[in-house]
């Protein structure tokens, strides 16, 4: 931090302000595709000669994202330094219609993430394809809403870090399983998923005791993770 202070001394407030605005714009532009943003790319494309005051710039960017847009900047991977934006404001009851039609892909995401969560965190690939087939989504065919579903789930959702797609060791031919990705951990509420599952099954969330425990313990750890950016 002494390096940051020294760096700040050599810059005018206006310069730091300008750089912060550029970094913020970069976040908004790169978030269009919902792929986590790497610190290395921020450095290379925007921060450039200002790298010695990077901590100060990222702090200010996070503050503006919060104060102007109601968004939160979260470092989801502290090892590889990748960031995502999440929404701090809840979608008020009855206002959904005014924020435009929901993103269809999030419906599919709900089904996949919901299944994984309800099954204890890991689900074999085939189980997901079978479930989707029952829902008239056949991975062998182009779907009206989702196009190439297999590609969407195993590539796009994985790149966005909603899902992790992992090889199951010692399988021949190789089999894969899915679990929640780092983005899902901070962006998706297990408590809400459980509530909707209960609603769908005309049951109470508490009747899935393990999931209930998990959802409510995850609630406290995730708020810790996002506030200290340490997981």
């Amino acid at each position: 931090t002494s390096q940051v202070l020294k760096g700040l001394e050599n810059l005018t407030e206006e310069q730091v302000y300008q750089k912060t605005a550029e970094v913020l714009q970069y976040f908004l532009v790169r978030d269009q595709k919902k792929i986590p943003i790497r610190r290395a790319d921020i450095m290379k494309h925007v921060v450039k000669d200002y790298r010695n005051i990077y901590p100060e710039i990222i702090k200010r960017t996070a503050r503006t994202l919060d104060q102007v847009f109601g968004l939160k900047l979260v470092e989801i991977d502290t090892k590889n330094h990748t960031y995502i934006l999440i929404n701090k404001l809840e979608e008020p009851e009855g206002m959904t219609s005014s924020s435009g039609p929901a993103n269809l892909k999030s419906g599919l995401l709900f089904v996949v993430l919901g299944l994984i969560f309800m099954k204890g965190g890991f689900v074999r690939e085939n189980l997901i394809w079978n479930l989707l087939k029952k829902l008239h989504v056949d991975i062998g065919q182009k779907h009206n809403d989702f196009g190439d579903v297999k590609k969407l789930i195993t590539e796009e959702f994985v790149r966005q870090r909603y899902l992790e797609y992992v090889k199951i060791p010692h399988t021949e031919p190789v089999e894969h399983e899915f679990c929640w990705g780092q983005r899902a951990d901070v962006e998706v509420s297990k408590v809400k998923i459980l509530e909707l599952m209960a609603q769908l099954h005309k049951d109470r969330p508490e009747s899935w005791s393990q999931q209930y425990k998990e959802a409510h313990s995850a609630l406290s750890t995730s708020s810790q993770a996002t506030s200290s950016s340490q997981r």
């Binding site: 008020p92 005014s98 435009g100």
Partner: peptide
């Protein structure tokens, strides 16, 4: 200063891109 009602309005503008006058008034109210 901005408060959450401004932020939510801005978020709706991000989602919609464009709204007509009635819709804007309705969003403001909501």
């Amino acid at each position: 200063q901005m408060d959450n009602s401004h932020r939510k309005f801005l978020q709706s503008m991000m989602t919609n891109g464009i709204v007509d006058e009635q819709r804007a008034a309705m969003l403001y109210q909501q």
